Computed example of a mutant assay.
Amino acid sequence: MREDSAGAYRPKLPADDWAAIEEYVRSVIVRVEPEVVYSARELYPAVTQLVHFTRTSSAPVEDDVVFDPVHIGRFINHHLASYNRASRNTIRARLRRVSETLLGDGAAGKFKALGKADASRPYVRAELAVLDAWAWQQRTMERRTSAGALLALGLGAGLTGAEIIAARTSDITDDGTSVTVHGAASRTVPLLLEWTTRMRERTDFIGSDGWVFRAEQRGGNTNLITDFVSRKGPTVQLQARRMRATWLAHHLEAGTPLKRLLRVAGLRSAEALDRVLPFVEE
């Protein structure tokens, strides 16, 4: 892009907002354009949106913050949630090249690492079907409703393993649509609609005050879930953190506002979502 056309660029932002970031945005384009395949005309919109997002998030407008791969991933998955997949992929590709140009090989390595599977990998649809069938196939009403409640609290409300073990039926609303969590991360979590029937089955079976998971437990056994699934467990390994990751990914894909998601998840910072972001479908 010629200097006069670059200087003429004006985004659809309030004048004050653009004035606050204009100098930095233009400096990024000047430094990066000679090193990448994209023109300034192609780079300006993507860089401007990212810088504006960074500033309104009260983060420092500095290269190593603005173009950090994790920060870019958060921007793409949250701020651009309403964009279609093709548009988000285009913006991501341009920002990735800018990031790699400004931050070097370290940034390139982080982008690759974001694609690797880890213990926070959400369950895919086929795995969820196996878990659901396993719960229904339990031979006693206690085990069947307990297994259903385990899935409802993990996949339907995103509770941690300790929170699942500590849940009482008195913490569940009568219609099974939400659960109150006590402790350091106290909150009320609405259940995803598809899991409310399983929750009502369990509360109807146990009554007004009992353990939601494993009626015979005494409380405080951190291995309770592992013990339960070690005998006649599903063919897919059942883990509380993968259930929670599945619930988080669902909300990210559904476009749940970030502040609300952090609140109902009992999280203090969006950084806690970074392990899940690579698995969020676009």
Rank of each mutant, 00 (worst) to 15 (best):
A6C: 07
P11Q: 01
W18Q: 01
A20G: 11
I21S: 10
Y24N: 01
V30M: 08
R31Q: 00
L43F: 13
V47G: 11
L50I: 08
H52L: 11
V61S: 06
E62G: 04
E62Q: 13
P69R: 00
P69K: 00
I72P: 01
I72C: 04
S82V: 12
R88G: 10
T90N: 11
I91E: 09
R96K: 15
R97P: 02
E100I: 02
L103A: 02
G104W: 04
K110S: 14
G115P: 04
K116L: 12
R125T: 15
E127D: 05
A129K: 08
A129V: 13
A133V: 06
L153M: 12
L155I: 01
G156P: 04
A162P: 01
I164Q: 13
D174I: 04
G183I: 04
S186V: 04
T188G: 01
L192R: 10
T196E: 04
E201Y: 08
R214K: 12
A215R: 11
Q217K: 06
I225N: 00
K232I: 02
L238E: 03
L238W: 02
A240E: 02
T246F: 08
L248Y: 06
L252W: 07
L252R: 09
E253T: 13
A254T: 11
T256D: 01
L258C: 06
L262E: 05
R263Q: 14
L277D: 07
F279N: 07
